[in-house]
């Protein structure tokens, strides 16, 4: 077996150029291992060699990311290593981001890459974008343990292996959940976990907490009396008889209907088709899910500028978040292009 060829990325401090006063320095490439790279070589074993060390100041890496990416790409193309290792960055935020950035540059070019840092390092959030990150302590005291964990996975990545799930391999979760047979029924695992939790022993949730994405709201509409207002509903509004064959849940598409000529929604022409609530009420008065009649009143009174001529409808039930986000982007782009300033989102 040929020995592993590694390119190592470190910051100015670990590259021996100096501390914070040297954080502005640009990219330099040194032949062979530098600083922690020597211990990394030892940890990798089997004659593994750090062919080159890319050193870059932390401020430079953050402020001039494109230049850094270019330099890393050039080195990878020249040396064609088996794996890129970045860091460990521990608790250092700019360094952590640079390490994650270096890994992305490498994987985009088909070179396996791995880094290590504290789970609360800002760079660790890049795990969600597929960067392989080994968790470490917050300071360099954790160096030996970090290098050992890093080397173990780097060796396998460098040999072209695909790693197993994060929970088993020990890297930070990447948000890619898959089916896994744990070999023991769920009820036994639940009661074991209960006993561990009650007795104060360590336990590991099978679904680690992941904070939900927050969407900052758009700024308020400056002048509502001149604004074009649209209506979007996840209430499952369909034309009577559902001629468009919309589903009652798990929507793969949304429908756009024209209401330019309508004063209100009539139960003779519209109904609900939605697997998540009591449809009969809105079938009697569809304006409950899409309050067109009320918006027309506001339009006449001059309190809003104009009711947008198109409405958007789909059933908001059991739709995967990724698909929902796609629907949302599509509708939002349409509305933006039509000059809509505000949208009434009617849930159920």
């Amino acid at each position: 077996m040929t020995s592993l060829r590694v390119v190592h990325y470190v910051n100015q401090f670990f590259g021996g150029l100096g501390g914070e006063d040297q954080a502005h320095v640009g990219v330099t490439v040194k032949t062979g291992a530098v600083g922690p790279g020597r211990a990394l070589e030892t940890a990798l074993g089997d004659g593994a060699r750090v062919e080159a060390t890319i050193v870059c100041g932390d401020n430079f890496a953050t402020e001039r990311a494109a230049e850094l990416a270019h330099a890393i790409a050039a080195e990878l193309d020249r040396l064609k290593p088996d794996v890129l290792v970045a860091g460990p960055a521990f608790g250092s935020g700019r360094y952590g981001l640079a390490c994650a950035h270096a890994c992305k540059v490498a994987t985009d070019r088909g070179v396996p890459a791995i880094t290590a840092m504290h789970p609360e390092n800002p760079g660790a959030s890049e795990a969600r974008r597929g960067v392989c990150i080994v968790p470490t302590g917050a300071s360099t005291i954790a160096m030996p343990a970090a290098l050992a964990a890093l080397a173990q996975l780097a060796r396998r990545l460098g040999r072209g292996e695909t790693l197993g799930p994060a929970e088993i391999e020990g890297y930070l979760p990447q948000g890619r959940r898959r089916v896994h047979d744990r070999g023991r029924p769920g009820y036994q695992r639940a009661l074991d976990m209960l006993l561990d939790k009650l007795d104060g022993r360590p336990y590991r949730s099978e679904v680690p907490y992941a904070p939900p994405e927050r969407v900052p709201p758009a700024p308020p509409i400056a002048d509502l009396s001149r604004a074009r207002i649209a209506m979007v509903t996840t209430g499952g509004l369909v034309r009577k008889g559902n001629p468009d064959r919309q589903v009652a849940a798990n929507a793969v598409r949304y429908h756009r209907h024209t209401v330019a000529e309508l004063e209100s929604l009539s139960p003779a022409e519209w109904e609900a088709y939605h697997a998540g609530y009591f449809n009969h009420l809105v079938n009697a008065n569809p304006n409950y899910i899409l309050p067109l009649s009320f918006l027309r009143d506001l339009e006449r009174q001059g309190r809003i500028g104009k009711v947008h001529e198109h409405i958007y409808a789909l059933p908001g039930v059991s739709t995967p978040v990724a698909v929902s986000a796609g629907h949302g982007r599509g509708i939002a782009a349409d509305l933006k292009a039509a000059g809509v300033e505000g949208a009434l989102l009617v849930a159920t």
Partner: peptide, 8 residues
């Protein structure tokens, strides 16, 4: 929890 299937 009859079965042993899980997510990971």
């Amino acid at each position: 929890g009859f079965g042993s299937l899980s997510g990971i």
